[in-house]
Design a protein around this nucleic acid. Structure first.
Lengths: 148, 148
DNA sequence: GTCATTGCAAAGCATTTGCAAGTCG
DNA sequence: CGACTTGCAAATGCTTTGCAATGAC
């Protein structure tokens, strides 16, 4: 029915929020859609992309919406060395990333099975592992070509 | 000869820096020793730990020394969700970490072989992978015991 | 009508930087 | 001595917060 997958995801997320008793404001809906549409946008990028359709949209609102989605486990915050964080609302669970050290592009490789590794780490350290983070850094195809 | 392993590491690092033409100031030596002595200290922790013996030591100098060590590949910056970064001068190459989500303690599990995984990610994404980051999050043994 | 949410501006904070004074080699 | 470092203070830049006005339900 929907035009594209990300828009479907956005509607589903909005519905989830409403179902949990949160108000469905136009701002929240717009932010959710922007996060679903972009690949791994920063808060700033989302804010900018909404500037035309929502001139009064505050960056603070973007951050507040992020905080809400985070608390509800509906978005994944991925912080690389970069200054600002990126977010993934399509796959809000731990999964690997490939980050370009030159242009910052983020790719999503397949999801490896780390079960055995988690068990080993738990045994080694005595920690009760509940989550993880696995990121790879290097040059993306575009930057590999464009001179070193 | 030296009293402990970390002090030996500190002297070796200092020697490396000198060998590369950098000045060996008392501040730099102190910062290096502090990083080697602590487990995974933050810049602030290092600065505080040196306050007694080096009252004039500036936090900026700690950061500048970190920048130098980073540029020389002699320290590993590990940034978790926390506000400030932690550093590992003993193993300045990628290796996994287990981070306590409650008290922030960091443990060093054994080093897994990710070669096959790196190759798969490179194939999947077309990236030229040069580094990676693998961290596990959960409760450390102490925090597991101390009530949820 | 109520109370959550928005938006603005100000505050927070780790980190960086400009620059004069100090000092390692 | 001369170039590199330090240390202070101010600047950065992302993110958070206080609070009055707004609007979802």
């Amino acid at each position: 029915m929907s035009r594209n997958p990300s828009s479907r995801v956005a509607e589903a997320l909005a519905e989830t929020l409403r179902g949990r008793g949160f108000r469905l404001t136009p701002q929240r809906l717009a932010v959710i859609r922007a996060f679903a549409a972009g690949r791994h946008p920063t808060a700033e990028e989302v804010h900018t992309s909404l500037a035309r359709d929502y001139p009064s949209m505050s960056l603070a609102t973007v951050y507040k919406t992020i905080a809400l989605l985070k608390a509800q486990g509906l978005i994944l915050e991925i912080d690389f060395g970069a200054r600002d964080n990126r977010y993934d609302i399509l796959r809000p669970y731990p999964h690997p990333h490939a980050v370009c050290t030159r242009c910052g592009a983020v790719a999503d490789p397949g999801d490896p099975d780390l079960t055995a590794l988690v068990e080993r780490v738990a045994r080694d350290t005595g920690y009760a592992i509940s989550s993880h983070r696995l990121d790879f850094f290097g040059l993306c195809p575009k930057c590999r070509g464009a001179g070193k």
